[in-house]
Write a protein that binds this DNA or RNA. Structure first.
Lengths: 149, 149
DNA sequence: AAGAATAGCGTGCGCGACGCACGCAATCTG
DNA sequence: CAGATTGCGTGCGTCGCGCACGCTATTCTT
């Protein structure tokens, strides 16, 4: 493998991990979806969409955050009607976090926006090139130095 | 283009933009390089390595941060001996920020570590596949929805 | 040439996000 | 049935960040 490869990818990852990059992308994705959903609260919605209804502690582990932070974000999202707290029927001290209908819709549209952004910037690529790139990127991220520590 | 492509890349970007991902990667890259260099201060070093000696305001624009933040990080790095403040010979009110020898060395080793991580996770790939992936990723990042807004 | 306007810099201040730890309620254990 | 444990929300301290002020040096204006 030529030496350039590592440095070329390093450059790309560098700009990708910039604070501003993340902020701009989230701003575009959550634009017009209400005051409550932003860069900090969206991971709660997204994680909850992945796991289904679960406790705040489990969700905290899922999105890599302290339990207290999840609780606070959840209250914000609850007040905005995107999330619902329901008592766990099996354990009366536990409360389950679950997405409401609008919450699910919010996650859905956000993901569609991201996919649309990506497809737009890949529009000029040969289809099979885009396809192989997608597979390679997925493989690189899941097997690289980014796995769950 | 198949619909999967957008969603597959979206997944990869999702995990890549996780808060924890960024934190873990920076922790590994800056491990043992001294107390002062961490996730927040490294962009100052890296940006300064790209631009060469320049003012705090210019560097702020470069790394997407407020000027005051650059100043504070610069003082931390200056106390650690990684950065030097020198008066601008052409403008006596201006002070230029410049990397010291150890500062340059720190940036160099950090970049080498990142490149090594990447090459390690690409070690099992066919060389020409890695090469095309690197080019595609670079192109995707520079032309995608991540450009400077 | 002198006073006004501007530019560069550092710092005080408030805001928001985060983690830790405490208290309360419910549950498990012996 | 009492003590230990678990789940949850919240107060507190810390930290990073942007805004705005004051100070100094420079540039503009007349």
């Amino acid at each position: 493998m030529p030496n350039d490869v590592g440095h070329e990818i390093a450059d790309a990852l560098g700009t990708l991990l910039r604070r501003g990059t993340r902020a701009r992308l989230y701003a575009r994705l959550t634009d017009g979806l209400g005051e409550a959903v932003d860069e900090t609260t969206y991971p709660v919605l997204s994680g909850l969409a992945r796991t289904g209804p679960c406790s705040a502690a489990d969700l905290a582990g899922e999105i890599g955050l302290d339990r207290s932070g999840v609780t606070r974000r959840a209250t914000r999202l609850e007040e905005a009607g995107l999330l619902r707290r329901e008592p766990d029927p099996d354990d009366r001290r536990a409360t389950l976090l679950a997405l409401t209908e609008t919450g699910q819709q919010t996650v859905k549209t956000t993901r569609q926006r991201l996919a649309a952004f990506i497809e737009a910037s890949l529009a000029s690529w040969p289809p099979e090139e885009a396809q192989s790139f997608a597979r390679q990127l997925h493989r690189f991220v899941t097997t690289g130095p980014f796995a769950e520590s």
